[in-house]
Amino acid sequence: MITLDINGKTHELDIPQDMPLLYALRNQVGLNGAKYGCGLGQCGACTVLVNDKPVFSCLTPCGALEGKSVRTVESLGSADKPGPLQKAFIDEQAAQCGYCIAGMIVRAQALLEANPHPDDDTIRRHMAPNLCRCGTHVRILAAIKSVIAQGAKV
């Protein structure tokens, strides 16, 4: 049994130690926000927060997560009540196919929690590990910057 703290709730899961967190989130816990992209830590679609830091959940074994807090995009708001970043991504129409967006929002969340007023260069460097095959990076940056400009608490 592995005990995982996910979005503030404790889950007792009967899974092997080596199961990547992404699989447990999607298959055991039913949180489908984080996506499987490459499975190699190269695309960022699976990004979640572990102890407030963005990590690739496809390469994070559940056995390494006891006592840590995991947060996914679902913790940031819902379709009815989107959080500030989620709302900004909608307003800026940052999603095209949308596959990368959960990871993008979560990585941006980590940045704004640690640094509410990053400059453009800092945003670009921080977001670099997450890829968007549709090429909506400009809108993604615009969405992040609009949250910064509003001064909204993420």
Partner: peptide, 11 residues
Amino acid sequence: ASLFDGACASC
């Protein structure tokens, strides 16, 4: 070994 399987083995 299990940590390697979960974190490293995919590459």
